[in-house]
Design a protein around this nucleic acid. Structure first.
Lengths: 334, 334
DNA sequence: CAACACGTGGCAACCGTTTGCCGTCTTGAG
DNA sequence: CTCAAGACGGCAAACGGTTGCCACGTGTTG
């Protein structure tokens, strides 16, 4: 199963290796008839360029890495899928890296891969901002669902989304909401809280924050209990996983949702439409986010001088059964 | 940000490049004090070996590819996670490939990657058996959740699991079950049906098969309708996604689960515990499957002559609310 | 008709490692 | 004291491409 090389092809075609190389990687550089002949011979020999040899000199690997804070979180599936498909469409390979919610592991893995990939997609990175900037000085980087001044980024809109969310609650008669915050170093957690607080102030609601909580179902218990102590009639969980955990705990404690308290989440994961009651949540086209991130990365390789774009993908408030009129047990008006 | 090479280290340390190389990749081959000195200098210079140069000559890339039939299926998340973690633990990188349920794309991607990875994990491959054998002749391959004579494989046990499942239904008084089959070229679909039919015969139940259906929620509607036409009181769906779709459709049609018909799935995905009613399903440690698959692959690289192992990871029947006494509306006895 | 610009193909250096082979220096045995 | 056997380090040839530069032939221009 010895695979054929550029040399075999060159010899069989009666040309120099440089011609074979160019026939593949720079077709315009060789005459049409020579090129066709070379390609034909190559096909016959089953020649396939060796990506490592190629990468060694050209310094392009046609591979991008996507680092996610936690591979277990269903929220990332769509993101990953979108990224994978877009990468494949351009003949790129997607390497998946799980940071396990640890900035240290995240950094370690990035360093391990620097020589093997053309760029990084950093999804929900937990790195401090300055570390990201430093990273970006050495590598091509697109941050996803986080915004860092000066870096290319793609985020799912959530300022306006949070506003709509709070407005939705306000219209249902809620006057006090609590935000069950995500991890301390999560950019989205900070950003969402700011938006929620702003919208609440604007609409005359009382807003407070509890946490931080891990964005998992398991943390939902503590989050639910914390929410209840505040007396708020509506709880906005940092993500759907946490919200589902909250729902469970409330059910266990005999608290009715949405009659006694309304619950909302973020991400619109698959399970949000299955839990009881179904979950009102801020969703959006996560696959588009992944797709766009890869696209920006690929683009930045061709036009390195461009200004780093900051893309915002629209979100969408999905009304389901977990929100209702404050303390009256009504149904959502959606 | 020009990165330092083995040559820089050699010069700074006053040794030959071969010594630097060996200090990293074959430590026993150099004297202890020289080695320490070299490593120290390397650290000071921030040297990191170039994986492509390394792969070019050594023919080892320290990368494995995992090909999944559909990256969107939550069932794979655990599998992927287990594989990723095991790979990382040995300093390997995991490349994720989505076959989009298409044997053609699957093959294309495999060919694209042959030169860049040390081996393949083929999860729920849709390839015909002979193609897999041919593939395995040229590459290191471990098939996951499929068994192919002569190839290394890891599967989540399901023959015994199906038996338990049928026994569970029998004990609830069901006398007729229908298997809502997965894709035509799915090995698990065939294998499960065989096990179900065998167990049913053994226990005196009537079993029939409908389908094939795509293993998605969307296909659940058709599957539910097909199940109802059979008059069976219990439906075994090819996976949880399909089962959830069935649950939805039955609810829409006003059919009570489990009072009128019991439903069971496979995989125990996260959502199985959230849907209404919660889903009885055959689960298991999917992460262990992924972990084991990587382990076998890595092992096979060190001992290429070994017989291809066929590992079976135990499964576990999870009883929830979607199964109950036949036509009486009882609750599960678990 | 000379001068020149292109369009093509070949030559050879280089990318950063690994590794077979060789030479030297120790060391311990006879 | 001699000699064989390691142990250790260095030399240089791969690995399989890419790419700057040169040479040659032809068509165009003044």
């Amino acid at each position: 199963m010895k695979s054929s090389t550029i040399y075999d092809v060159a010899q069989a075609a009666g040309v120099a290796t440089s011609t074979v190389s160019r026939a593949f990687s720079n077709p315009d550089r060789v005459g049409a008839v020579t090129r066709e002949h070379v390609l034909e011979v190559a096909r016959r020999l089953g020649y396939q360029p060796n990506p490592h040899a190629r990468a060694l000199v050209s310094r392009r690997t046609r591979t991008v890495a996507m680092v996610v804070s936690d591979i277990t979180n269903p929220h990332f599936f769509e993101l990953i899928r979108g990224a994978e498909m877009r990468a494949k469409a351009s003949g790129y390979t997607l390497v998946l890296v799980n940071a396990e919610e640890s900035p240290r592991i995240e950094l370690e893995q990035i360093n391990r891969l620097t020589r093997s990939v053309d760029g990084f997609l950093l999804a929900a990175s937990r790195q401090p901002e300055e570390d990201l900037l430093q990273l970006a000085a050495g590598h091509r980087v697109v941050v996803v669902n986080r915004r860092v001044p000066g870096l290319a980024s793609v985020v799912l809109e959530h300022a306006e989304g949070c506003r709509q969310m709070v407005a939705h609650l306000a219209s249902l008669g809620h006057s006090s909401v609590v935000y069950l915050a995500g991890p301390r170093n999560s950019w989205t957690a900070a950003s969402r809280w700011a938006a929620i607080r702003g919208a609440a102030a604007e609409l005359g609601l009382h807003a407070q924050r509890m946490g931080p909580f891990a964005p998992t179902v398991a943390s939902g218990g503590a989050a639910a209990d914390a929410a209840l102590t505040t007396g708020a009639t509506a709880a906005i969980a940092h993500n759907d996983l946490l919200a589902i955990g909250v729902l469970r705990r409330l059910a266990d404690r005999g608290v009715q949702v949405p009659a006694d308290v309304s619950v909302v989440g973020f991400d619109d994961i698959f399970a949000a439409d299955l839990c009881t009651p179904t979950l009102t949540t801020l969703g959006g086209a996560h696959a588009d986010v992944g797709r766009a991130a890869v696209e920006i990365l690929l683009n930045s390789m061709e036009h390195p001088r461009d200004h780093a774009p900051e893309l915002v993908v629209p979100s969408e408030l999905i009304l389901r059964r977990s929100t209702g009129s404050a303390r009256t047990g009504g149904r959502p008006d959606g």
